[in-house]
Amino acid sequence: MDKDEGQSKANIIMVTDGPAIPNPRERRLINAWSIALTGAILSLLLLCYAGPSSYREALLFLPDGILLTFKLTALAICCAVPLGLLTGLGRISRNRCINLIASTYVEVIRGIPLLVQVFYIYFALSQFLRIQGVPAAVIAVSICYGAYMGEVFRAGILAIPKGQTEAARSLGFNRFQTMFYVVLPQAWRTILPPVGNECIAMLKDTALVSVIGMPDMMQRARSFASQSYAYFEAYTVVALVYLIITLLLSKIVSVIEARLNYYDRRK
């Protein structure tokens, strides 16, 4: 493997099953993102106002679940992003002990499905420490996505040329100052899209917490379906709502990325 090939592989940032972030340079009015969003919104409106009343009732049953879903996602992001940063720094640390701990955490957590982690924290650990629903869900999602984000941060940091680090050190910066004042600000442009993707995937995966009785969107849809037996209508509505939310969030990430690129060009 030559040097250029190794560098290109080092710069690849893996993401999970989040939606594709719209290209910030995309100027066409009709594109995949706009078609998907328009189709989802129109479908939801047509079903609720032109279809059977069960669609409308299912949508009115969801607001509490939507709020809880956003609450869980926001709390998990606040925990997972710092954890991912620490993990990424640990993965590139020269300290063998720190590197081993961070690498082991990534390998173990990425090898266990999130659903199993939710069950383990809420049910298995309850034999020793009682953890309520919201904290258990936030801890499980944060630990799971902290490992994935750790790889994103590691790849983004390694994508910065070593010359930047050497230049900073030659100016008298220590390692901490070099990382947080020179490397990370440059790496953020590379890191932002996959981190945004992970956050959106995190929002979707909060649907798994319904298995522990958390009244999120999925659990609210299940409750409505069990009461009305309108399973098709309930799950169709919740699927469209999830789709609309994730598409809007992906666009927000795309706009932020475009702003960062714009400010970088002006510098």
Rank of each mutant, 00 (worst) to 15 (best):
93 S>A: 08
50 A>F: 12
68 L>H: 11
248 L>E: 08
108 V>M: 02
62 L>N: 03
187 A>Q: 05
259 R>A: 09
122 Y>H: 15
65 G>E: 12
58 A>M: 10
146 G>V: 15
166 E>N: 01
180 F>I: 08
55 Y>G: 05
72 L>C: 13
252 I>F: 12
207 A>P: 01
108 V>R: 00
208 L>D: 02
229 Y>I: 13
94 R>N: 11
23 N>T: 08
125 L>D: 07
249 L>D: 08
49 Y>G: 03
70 F>L: 15
168 A>K: 01
20 A>K: 09
246 T>S: 14
6 G>I: 15
233 E>C: 09
76 A>D: 12
95 N>E: 08
11 N>H: 11
57 E>G: 14
139 I>N: 03
57 E>D: 14
68 L>I: 15
238 V>F: 05
182 V>K: 02
212 I>H: 04
264 D>W: 00
187 A>E: 09
99 N>Q: 06
136 A>Y: 11
240 L>I: 08
175 R>A: 14
53 S>K: 14
25 R>G: 13
6 G>L: 14
132 Q>I: 01
176 F>N: 04
52 P>Y: 02
174 N>K: 00
161 P>I: 02
188 W>S: 09
167 A>V: 04
205 D>A: 06
59 L>C: 06
112 I>A: 01
27 R>L: 13
71 K>N: 12
199 C>N: 03
18 G>C: 07
191 I>Y: 05
233 E>F: 10
168 A>S: 13
149 M>N: 15
19 P>K: 00
133 G>T: 14
103 S>D: 10
91 R>Y: 00
64 D>W: 12
28 R>W: 08
173 F>T: 02
26 E>M: 03
30 I>T: 03
205 D>R: 05
111 G>K: 01
179 M>Y: 03
98 I>R: 00
92 I>C: 01
230 A>N: 13
94 R>V: 02
136 A>R: 04
150 G>C: 11
76 A>F: 08
185 P>I: 07
200 I>L: 05
